[in-house]
Design a protein around this nucleic acid. Sequence first.
DNA 1: CGTAGGTTTGACTGATCTCAAGTTTGGTGG
DNA 2: CCACCAAACTTGAGATCAGTCAAACCTACG
Lengths: 243, 243
Amino acid sequence: MPAEGADVFGSVIRRLERFGRFDASDREAIAALPFTLGRGRSSHYIVRERDRVTQCAILLSGYACRHRTTSDGGRQIVSFHLPGDFLDLQHMLIPVADYNVQTITEATWAIVPANALREAARDRPAVLEALWRDTLIDASVFREWVLNIGRRDAKSRVAHMLCEFATRRKAAGLGSPERFELPMSQEQIADATGLTPVHVNRMLGALSADGIIARDKRRVDIVDWKRMCRVADFDPAYLHAAA
Amino acid sequence: MPAEGADVFGSVIRRLERFGRFDASDREAIAALPFTLGRGRSSHYIVRERDRVTQCAILLSGYACRHRTTSDGGRQIVSFHLPGDFLDLQHMLIPVADYNVQTITEATWAIVPANALREAARDRPAVLEALWRDTLIDASVFREWVLNIGRRDAKSRVAHMLCEFATRRKAAGLGSPERFELPMSQEQIADATGLTPVHVNRMLGALSADGIIARDKRRVDIVDWKRMCRVADFDPAYLHAAA
DNA sequence: CGTAGGTTTGACTGATCTCAAGTTTGGTGG
DNA sequence: CCACCAAACTTGAGATCAGTCAAACCTACG
């Protein structure tokens, strides 16, 4: 039995609707999008920088990230992704990838032709607006990361990354923001925060020692959310109530 | 004699047309946008974080930047802007500002109601596509900044910022990329690169000492563009041939 | 001239990195 | 079920890049 759009895109529709403007036809337009399914283990590349891309991927299960590299081999993760996230919506209009998309756990995703998305956006103004708004929020998160990496010290950066992950997790309906399993390694946290793995490890240790978080392997328990937000200088406004 | 849309929006139309899809009606739709003019000296705030905003500003002359701040007073500039740039296109769809927009020189700008822009986008698919693409390129630049600040050393960061400025300047038709007057102070470069003003000064000195650039006050002469790009690890692909 | 903002320089400090050696964890095959 | 292996995590010691503090010097402009 082949996958049905209505099932597959459920989380995406819920997410795009968070500003409450969809009617039945809008939902149908999305559910009717043609797609194929992708599936891969941890570390699988979904898109590579410089690829010509005429389709967009939507994460359905598992976790992924986008990253870019410097010519001397440095890797910078520019975003983490949860189920329901568009991984490269920009390929609706831009045909060449300027970043890599890679899974960080086992994952599945839907692949939708860019022109099908463009048509849905053309026919359904509410869909267009939701997609565009998603793009804008994406950009807002990048700005926060520029601030985080450029102007906060190591402990705050790591704490901020955890706060963002917890908040988006909650918003995506994946459970409590105060207690969760991290999908990413400390090396990946380092690549996202502009630090080294060794220092990330020490900062996580420091947050534990402060009694702000408790850890068991990759399980994180944010014991004191208030203090955590203070240390992280975290204000969720930049997420615009996004996933 | 009041300003005419056709004159005022000339640079914007040229910029939006860089993918060559406008017909006469598209151009007319933009030229016919209602607007008011803004004008201010250096350091004038055009938009403040948390403001409710239902209009979008387009820079017509002078230079501006967008920035965010940490709670302990750190300032991070997240982008610089040249004439022809949209300063807050996101307010077409998002009614609350998550960053400040501030001039860095004397400047003038056009203020267009968000709903007028939405209508132009609704009626003219080519305009919509151009505006959306602008948003996407904006985001691509943020990603490059995350990489720049997160993974390059101080000298490269400063060099990269200069390369980007030079390239966008050229693309916007403002003259040679190899010889120009910097509109921003070293403190502003520091706020954009996640460094301190003192260290920016030393890095500029180092680039001069290397013979890669020559300086006279704020005038910069990129003597050896090849070497400059190498030091900066600069590849203009992320600008997607943008302004 | 006098003043304020911007730039330059020096000496010292410190946060983060590097290198290196363990230790733990999770998966795999016997 | 256990032994083994690779990957991930942890810890320590020393090095370094960039920050801090402070003073001097421009230079534009009123």
